[in-house]
Measured scan of single mutants.
Amino acid sequence: MATGGRRGAAAAPLLVAVAALLLGAAGHLYPGEVCPGMDIRNNLTRLHELENCSVIEGHLQILLMFKTRPEDFRDLSFPKLIMITDYLLLFRVYGLESLKDLFPNLTVIRGSRLFFNYALVIFEMVHLKELGLYNLMNITRGSVRIEKNNELCYLATIDWSRILDSVEDNYIVLNKDDNEECGDICPGTAKGKTNCPATVINGQFVERCWTHSHCQKVCPTICKSHGCTAEGLCCHSECLGNCSQPDDPTKCVACRNFYLDGRCVETCPPPYYHFQDWRCVNFSFCQDLHHKCKNSRRQGCHQYVIHNNKCIPECPSGYTMNSSNLLCTPCLGPCPKVCHLLEGEKTIDSVTSAQELRGCTVINGSLIINIRGGNNLAAELEANLGLIEEISGYLKIRRSYALVSLSFFRKLRLIRGETLEIGNYSFYALDNQNLRQLWDWSKHNLTITQGKLFFHYNPKLCLSEIHKMEEVSGTKGRQERNDIALKTNGDQASCENELLKFSYIRTSFDKI
């Protein structure tokens, strides 16, 4: 039985969820670079991206490699990797027998973001014989899940209580170790020597080791999670996991709180800001991140802002960003909400898709409305799209047979046209069989910064309504002859009103 693990408890099935942008060198404390989270699957090609990484700022997932063999891993080693800020997950990587050479110096898994409450997941690794993470000293947050690894031993010899604050939620089941077939031998045991430290858990006094050649490092209890030197002297209180010299914040392997210019500090002093819960960055760093993602459509890219001495992905609820200094300031009234469309555009074809934009005031991208039916549609669209004030790209209304009016965009005031449909149009209306009105132009103002209007096959939309939009939106004169079809717009509506004058002759039985 794995020490510190839980057996036999019912657990939810383990679901495996399925960018080499360097964020800056980590400095003297770390020998390499800070790398983003990685999802490495199918083959070993991307694994080489770990070569210079000291910190993975995010998670590391290595999974679904069915053609790899043990010899493929023999020359692979990433000794610079010290810390993973989120979680480490391995799933069905064939041929991998140990992690001792792959990650010989991995010391800390912070667990800032977890995989279903777990910071370390080893699942269905069919050839893994031992973990071998002999320098792993601290899992700051989260638990361990090690399950269905039929060859995995050296679990009962690990004292997880020396690595985690609590072992109650560890789930370590259905491994070879369960069948008591392992016969784990710690260093020196074969020669009758006791080389590794022994600890007591559940009444068992057991030597602690990761492999037959690597003991588990056990520091004096007084050192807590700070770690200790090879001689057993406690590291500085700002260290986490390990250090090369005692009581020196510049000799830590990793930091308990924050890293700044080669030393570990309790908090980031001005003019620095907390970033990702582990390091200090200056304003320029946060500003660069903001600008890199301002026009990016890459998933996970955030326009970072500053709030409460932190550089964070977005302002919290009730705050909006001051564009001059990136500071989050309290909103006066309802907060603006910028919604970034991942692929640059979004099609609204149902109430469900409209709900995804609920509360958005600025759309960074283009909207395509293609709704053919739905219950209580006008009210639903207004509830979900009615706060949109600005669209950076274009607005396209296409084959939306259920629409009679666009009044559900009740606050839309600006279409920038930074991206144009077919390279020309910022407003595009095609084949809307029941569209009769755009907006009530006596109450609604709309500016279209650039781009043209396109109207074709809107049989109940009168040309007068379209011409009014040209005047109000500032697009009059931009359109070419064929942009607004004269014969297919309003051709099934009563669009022309003329005053009919009647004269009559009164007659009676005795007068003409």
Rank of each mutant, 00 (worst) to 15 (best):
Y30K: 01
V34Q: 04
P36E: 14
D39V: 13
I40N: 02
R41V: 08
R41T: 14
N42K: 09
L44Q: 04
E49A: 07
L50G: 02
L50D: 00
L50V: 06
E51L: 06
S54Q: 12
I56R: 11
E57Q: 11
G58A: 00
G58P: 00
H59G: 08
H59K: 01
L60T: 01
I62C: 01
I62A: 01
L63M: 08
L63E: 04
L63N: 01
M65A: 13
F66K: 12
D72M: 14
D75M: 11
L76M: 05
L76C: 08
F78A: 04
P79Y: 03
K80A: 09
I82G: 04
M83H: 07
D86I: 01
D86Q: 11
D86S: 03
D86K: 02
L90T: 06
L90E: 00
L99N: 01
L102A: 03
P104S: 01
L106W: 01
V108M: 12
I109E: 00
R113G: 12
F115W: 13
A119F: 01
A119T: 04
A119D: 00
A119P: 01
A119V: 03
V121F: 02
E124F: 04
E124L: 02
M125Q: 05
L128M: 09
K129P: 01
K129Y: 08
Y134E: 06
Y134N: 05
L136V: 07
M137S: 09
I139T: 02
I139W: 00
I139M: 07
R141C: 03
R141T: 02
S143D: 10
V144I: 13
R145K: 11
I146F: 07
N149G: 04
N149F: 02
N149T: 08
N149L: 00
N150D: 06
N150Q: 12
N150G: 13
E151W: 08
E151M: 09
L152S: 03
L152P: 00
C153I: 01
Y154L: 05
L155T: 14
L155R: 04
A156Q: 11
T157M: 04
I158P: 07
I158D: 05
D159Q: 13
W160K: 02
W160V: 01
S161P: 02
I163G: 01
E168L: 09
N170L: 08
Y171W: 11
L174T: 13
L174A: 13
N175L: 11
D178M: 15
D178C: 10
D178H: 14
E180D: 04
C182G: 04
G183P: 10
I185P: 13
C186S: 07
T189A: 12
A190I: 06
A190L: 10
A190F: 09
G192K: 15
K193G: 12
T194I: 13
N195C: 08
P197K: 10
P197Q: 14
P197Y: 08
V200P: 12
V200N: 14
I201K: 07
N202T: 11
Q204S: 08
Q204R: 08
V206L: 13
R208S: 14
R208E: 05
C209K: 13
C209S: 03
C209N: 05
C209P: 03
C209L: 02
H212A: 14
H214Q: 10
K217H: 07
K217I: 14
V218A: 10
C223S: 03
C223T: 01
S225Q: 07
H226E: 06
G227Q: 14
G227T: 07
C228V: 08
C228G: 01
E231F: 15
C234T: 02
C235Q: 00
C235N: 01
H236G: 06
C243G: 00
D247K: 07
D248I: 03
P249F: 02
P249V: 03
T250Q: 03
T250H: 06
T250W: 05
K251C: 07
R256A: 10
R256F: 07
R256S: 07
N257R: 11
G262V: 02
C264W: 01
C264G: 00
V265D: 03
C268L: 01
P269I: 08
P269Y: 06
P270D: 11
P270W: 14
Y273E: 01
H274G: 15
F275T: 03
F275R: 01
Q276L: 08
W278V: 04
C280L: 01
S284L: 10
S284E: 15
F285W: 08
C286D: 01
Q287L: 05
Q287F: 14
C293G: 01
K294G: 13
R297P: 09
R297F: 04
H302W: 11
Q303N: 08
Q303G: 11
Q303I: 11
Y304S: 03
V305H: 04
H307A: 03
H307N: 04
N309F: 10
N309A: 10
K310D: 14
P313L: 04
P313R: 07
E314R: 12
E314I: 03
P316Y: 03
T320Y: 08
T320K: 03
M321R: 08
N322E: 00
N322R: 10
N325K: 03
N325A: 13
C328T: 03
T329S: 10
P330M: 05
L332T: 03
G333L: 02
G333W: 03
